[in-house]
Every structure is written in C-alpha cells, then in structure tokens.
Design a protein around this nucleic acid. Sequence first.
DNA 1: TTGTACGCGTTATCAG
DNA 2: CTGATAACGCGTACAA
Lengths: 344, 344
Amino acid sequence: MGTMTIKDIAKKCKVGVSTVSRAMNNHPDINPETKEMIMRVIEESNYVPNNSARNLKRSDAKAIAVLIKGIGNTFFNQLISVLERECQEKKYSCILQRVEEGENEVDVALEIAKEKKLRGIVFLGGNFSHPQSKMAQMEIPFVLSTIYTTDTEENICASVSVDDFKESYKMTEYLIGLGHRKIAIITAQREDESIGKLRLLGYQKALEKHGIPFDESLVCYMEMNVDQYSFQSGYKITKKLLKRGVSFTALYATSDTLAIGACRALKEEGIRVPEDCSVAGFDGMDAGEFYIPSITTIRQPVEAIAQATANLLFDMIKKKEQPKRMIFEGELMIRESTDVLPVV
Amino acid sequence: MGTMTIKDIAKKCKVGVSTVSRAMNNHPDINPETKEMIMRVIEESNYVPNNSARNLKRSDAKAIAVLIKGIGNTFFNQLISVLERECQEKKYSCILQRVEEGENEVDVALEIAKEKKLRGIVFLGGNFSHPQSKMAQMEIPFVLSTIYTTDTEENICASVSVDDFKESYKMTEYLIGLGHRKIAIITAQREDESIGKLRLLGYQKALEKHGIPFDESLVCYMEMNVDQYSFQSGYKITKKLLKRGVSFTALYATSDTLAIGACRALKEEGIRVPEDCSVAGFDGMDAGEFYIPSITTIRQPVEAIAQATANLLFDMIKKKEQPKRMIFEGELMIRESTDVLPVV
DNA sequence: TTGTACGCGTTATCAG
DNA sequence: CTGATAACGCGTACAA
C-alpha cells in the first residue's frame, strides 16, 4: 500500500477529504461518530499525513526553532531542556536544528523559518557577526542565547548571556588575589571576535589593573581545526605550553572542558593541582564539578538564562517586548583546583 | 515584500518559473547567461525557496535521518560526526532528529521519512522493543546503531553494536582476576530490557562462572526519573549504596559517566580509588580518559561502529545488502581506577 | 454536518 | 534553451 494520502482515507471511509482533515485536526464541526470512525480507519491503515503539504498550507504554526552551532558543547544540553519544557507549556513545538561550523546560521534560520512557518528563533553558539543587511531579513523575532554580539546602539539584537568580559575579569582577579602573578591562559583561536575575545580581554584588563605586565608567551590560542572546547584540545594545548618551558603558577582555561584536559596534561608531567599549579575553568559544567580535583569556575546561571531566553522570545512574539540585551551575573565557584600561591 | 516566491523572481527576471527553477537546481539545459542573471536577482531579492513545497514535489531526496533518543549522551556525538562525514562523501544530506524519552521512535521515523522523502534511517539510543507490525511499516532501510534488539530469527533488524553481554562479562572477569569478590554494580533501571539488562546479565554470568554467589544487595538500579546515565546519577546512587553499609572492594558502573559520579561520591567518603576501591566504567568516553584517576573501561569502537552503520545503510539503500546484525569487539582499557585487591 | 474545488510554492513534463 | 501547465498532499472557503 505504498504511500497513503488523505484521499485514500477519504475513499475508504466513504467521506470527503475535508471531513478526514477535520477529524485529524480536532475541528469542532464534525459528527463525533464520523470522527471516531475515521480515526479508527487512519489507525488501521497506518496513514501518516505528509508534513510538507501541511506546512505548505498552514499559516499559523505555533513553533519556534533552536539553532545550535557546536553541538557536543554539553553546556547547551541543559539550556535546550529548559527551552523545550517552556515550549511545551506554551503549547508550542520546538524544533532543534544543528548548524555546521562552516554554515551561516542566519541563512539556515531564514530557510527553516520559511519552511516551518516559525514564530521565533533562538540562536545558540556561534560567533554571530553578521552584516545588518542580513539580519534585517529576519522577519520573525529571535534571541541570541549565551552569545555576545557587537551590535550598535540603534540596532540591538535580543540577547541574553553573562558579561563574559566582566566574569573573566572576576576570575583573573580571584587568581591574582591568591597571589598568582604568572597566570597562563587558554583562549579561543586568535581570530575569535566573540566570547573568546571578551574573556581574553577581561583577563588582560585584570592583569593591568593589578600592575601585572601582560606576557604574550603565557597566552595559548586554540587551534582552528580541532574540536574547539574539548578535553583533547585543552590537553594538547597545555602539553605544548609546558614544552615551551615558560613558568606559571596558575592556568586559566576559558572553559571547564579545557581545564579538565589541562589537569590531565599537568598530571602527566608530575605537576600537582592545585599544589604546584592552580587551574581554573569557565562555564560551570557538571563535568568540572565531578572532576578530581573539582574545577574552580565561573558558573553561568544556565537555568535562568534559558528561562529568560524563552520569556523574552515569547514576549517578542506577542509584541509585548522590544529586542533588548539581558545580562546575567556569573558566580565564582571556588573549588579544589585552585589554591593560594605557596610562599617559596 | 513579505515573503517571496518563485513567481516573483520569475516576474522580476521576465522569464518563466521553470527557468528560475532550473537555475536554482543546477539543471544542465539552461543558458549560462540567463542563469547568472537569475541567480543575481535571487541574491538581491533575498529570496529563499520554500522547502516544504520542494519536499512535496521532489521524489528523490538523497537524504537520510539520524534519530537520537537521549541526547546529552556524549557518546553519540562522535558517532554522529562520523555519520555526517560519511553522508557528505556520498552527497547525501543528513538530518538529525532528536526524539523525546517518551516518544515512540518508530512513529517519528515514519513521519519524518514521509515528510523528507528519506532514503534511510539510523536509530541511536532507546530500548527498541517494538511490535513487528509497527516495524513492517518502515518502507525504507534502517539500521540500529549501538542498540540491541530482541529480534527473531526470521525477522532480523539491521543493527551494529558491541555484544554488551560479552563485554560486561569481560569486565567483570577482569575485576575478579584482580582478586575482587565483592563487586558492586550500578546498572539500568529494573525494567530495562535492553543493553542495561545485558550488561547486568554479563556481570552475573561472570560471577557464577567463578563461583561467586550473586548478591542482590550489591546491585544498584538507576532511578527512572533522573537523567539516566549522568554524573549526578552515578553520584547519588553511590552515596545511597554507601549508606546501605554493605562492603565491597570494587564498583562496576555500566557507563563511564556513572563511574565518574561514583568516584566523586567515594572520595567524599574518604574512600580512595583505586587503593580502597576499584572503579570500572563502560563505553570508553573521553571524559573517563581525562578523569583523575582515569577510568578503566570497555571501549566501544565508536569510529568503526559508525563507519559500519553508514556502510550497511547505504548498501541496503542500494539493495546490495540485506539487513543483518553486526557485532564489534569492545576493548578492555585498563587505566588508573582499578587495581589488585590488596592482601589484608 | 458534509463534500467540492481551489490554492499553497515547487518541480517535472512536454510542447514550442 | 524556454515557457505553460499539471501534479505533489493537504487545509479551507464555499456551497449543499
């Protein structure tokens, strides 16, 4: 019975197609008996309506999409869960769409918005520096979650995130407060113009503030090809740093995963954490909490960010709210991987 | 200028719609100049073709989908990467579709297969015990990756995985070989009929083989509600186990994430790994490799499994291959978290 | 309450 | 090489 259509069902039931349609879509004006009969036939026939045809016709979809750049980033999983929960509550369906590293997320957004007749979009991850002309094409509300974008005064994107600059400053200052002066940093690739850069700037600013000269040889940039914020990445970079032979008493990795990779690398060289070297991360992921030693980090309030993202988006959909930037406070989680610099 | 259609473009270009369609879809029979002109207009107009309409018409899609039950399972990320790479090579597009814990993956498959005119499907995760009648509706090839299913002789599903029973037996035997006799196990929820059960059975079999009586009080079942194979889960279960006051010298967690959670819990109680208690995992994830102590585990050959999954599926699509079950060998990775039982 | 017929945006067929 | 036009499967005015 190859592929059923609504017509086949109509024929089987000896009714018109519209009646079948009404039965499927819970329309009020239909005889309950006819409806039941139709539903039974549908069930028996294993009929599955064609979504493409539906989307083509439908004007109202009650759906949003979440575009995720850089899956594998465990950090997003929690965020997504909350977003999905929130959608369910609002009776919206939530479409998850992964976008490749090389792809342009706005293009993907434009396409899927049209295909699925979306009401709104959430962007997760990515650098997000797109020309204004491109952004203007987005006819539906969208919010950037966990992403920073360098938008101008007159044209602000809706976004919710922590202030990466400030939080990074906070962490660096904490390390300095422990007595560390030679603080190595693992940061995004040189070309990064987004959160990676901000975190680096925060680090620099804190050093400057405390009269510690910025030492380029203590900065480790991630490589382009490898999986950006992975254990592997942190491990390799740290190995390389150690080979360079520069000395440092603290290592600030700009993500918890990087920090964990770094700890492994240090251990292999017989360097104890935190006794010989303090290690700090960023994000506040579970992995860092369970690690031994547990990783000192800046915890992003994921739950709150996700919640705010959903609220802002739905408010924008209802025209109740203009795009705005929302900043959340990160929390310095002092754990086992950092310690005061021992006096020698 | 709301939403452009192909007609608008045709009008703008003063050509017929079919010419525009040809330009977009790289058809051979079109004047290069006309094509170029059309493409320019499309670009300028920010026209985005409607995918629903496309899918509706298209008969051939050259696409497969990967249905993932239980994202968050980092284990899948690698698998997916390989699958995507393989698709690219074959010029197929690869659609990732998450399926909720409560959803029926076959229903989702049926729907998306129809909507996207898929050529094949890969199932990742889930228990997969579906009635034969349901499976019969799948008109396109599909393969279960990393999933075990209790299929009958005459009706085998295509699947590729390790032999969870055998591998679990292997791990347990290894622990016994170290001198351990009181081996606790963290396993799936009681109701599990899939890999969780198999791993438990492998454990039991190994005990039996070596004349060690099975002790129900050493078995920790996961809870239903919590995130199944998470750090948290392993942590909590271990805490509970310790409270029970039963003594054990080794703890076999049936996933690396559980093992890591367990290590944390043990540490908090002042129990050293591996000196006081050996801990073993399963899967061979990065997280376990970088953990301190690194986790002894059974490494699933993810790369090979993914590769075989792709090959099998594409062969089935080309009718070159019948559904079959493929078993891969797991590798016992002896690392820091296990040690011989000290003679007291 | 139900059935008929049209249109959604594309692509494919077939004459020019 | 190009342009009409017929599907694709469904929802929905509109008529009955």
